[in-house]
């Protein structure tokens, strides 16, 4: 009799565990639908023909899905040009931030010189200054140089990032110093060391840095809004926000544009997230 009672308790326990598992999945699906709703909605809008907008039966799902919005948006504005500009700006910013961050981090971590700590502190302290607190002076400065309406003005001020320097220095904290010394004994020059040994070993950090830099450059808004006023150098974010979205026709086109503009950063994000997983240094030092 005692054994039977125990069995019932066991069954309850097993049912409870099963419920927990399925409950988790169902909760996740519900939460996902809630959290992702704006994106789902944007996607559904982007494949709606304008006429569907006023159809009470097509509030959420389109009745006659179409891809024509994605091509039509290129006709109402030079979206291709915007994307090209943004790609150029984002790639240049990303690459130069990676290089400048690791060169600086190398100097801060491996080279001994006077003022090392002070200078690093100074660099780090700039993270405390909100961009908006200096943007007026930055803007007046670059416009006095006649830099406005160029791609240069979008790139040059952003080729150094204090945050990425911080990230690179952090990632070097755990970098085995003996590898640097070993390379030195092997006759490796410092610059060679940075590019052939240090950076390949920090691929995960570089990956996450690249993702961050690219996304924030891609999504940059206030600075290009102030410094560019010309379709030839406009980035996608500015271009989209300038689109007129008064009537239903232009509304779906704009949303299609928004969806297009999100694809590169989302793609980079999804790919980058995977590559960030594992550190490469395991196995370098003992076992």
């Amino acid at each position: 009799m005692k054994a039977k009672a125990l069995n019932a308790a066991e069954l309850k326990y097993i049912r409870h565990e099963k419920m927990k598992k399925w409950g988790g999945i169902i909760l996740n699906i519900a939460w996902w639908a809630f959290l992702m709703f704006p994106l789902i909605y944007a996607f559904l809008m982007s494949v709606k023909p304008p006429a569907d907008l006023y159809d009470p039966n097509a509030i959420l799902f389109p009745k006659n899905p179409t891809l024509s919005n994605f091509t039509d948006v290129f006709k109402v504005a030079p979206v291709g040009r915007y994307i090209l500009n943004t790609v150029l700006v984002a790639v240049l910013i990303t690459l130069s931030q990676i290089v400048t961050s690791f060169l600086s981090a190398f100097a801060f971590r491996f080279l001994k010189f006077k003022g090392n700590k002070f200078l690093y502190g100074l660099v780090i302290s700039t993270m405390m200054v909100p961009g908006e607190a200096v943007i007026i002076s930055q803007f007046l400065m670059v416009s006095s140089w006649g830099w406005t309406d160029t791609l240069m003005v979008l790139v040059i001020p952003h080729i150094v990032s204090a945050f990425n320097i911080f990230l690179a220095v952090q990632s070097l904290e755990n970098f085995p110093y003996e590898i640097y010394e070993s390379a030195k004994v092997d006759g490796c020059s410092d610059l060679n060391f940075v590019f052939t040994i240090m950076m390949p070993l920090l691929k995960p950090t570089i990956g996450s840095m690249a993702v961050r830099s690219f996304i924030s450059a891609w999504n940059m808004y206030m600075w290009p809004l102030l410094t560019t006023n010309n379709d030839n150098v406009r980035t996608i974010q500015i271009g989209l926000s300038m689109l007129n979205a008064e009537d239903s026709q232009s509304m779906v086109l704009m949303i299609a544009g928004v969806v297009i503009s999100m694809i590169p950063s989302l793609l980079i994000f999804v790919i980058g997230q995977k590559s960030m997983v594992k550190g490469l240094t395991s196995g370098a030092v003992k076992g």
């Binding site: 959290l35 959420l60 996304i215 999504n219 808004y221 928004v258 989302l266 999804v270």
Partner: peptide, 30 residues
């Protein structure tokens, strides 16, 4: 799910604002 929950990181404030604009449109917004 975990990738989805992290995606807002990759979304531009502009894009999201434009989506909200449509969602909140008085006549056609959801």
């Amino acid at each position: 799910f975990s990738t989805s929950y992290a995606t807002p990181m990759a979304i531009a404030s502009v894009g999201m604002a434009l989506i909200f604009q449509v969602m909140l449109n008085p006549s056609v917004g959801i």
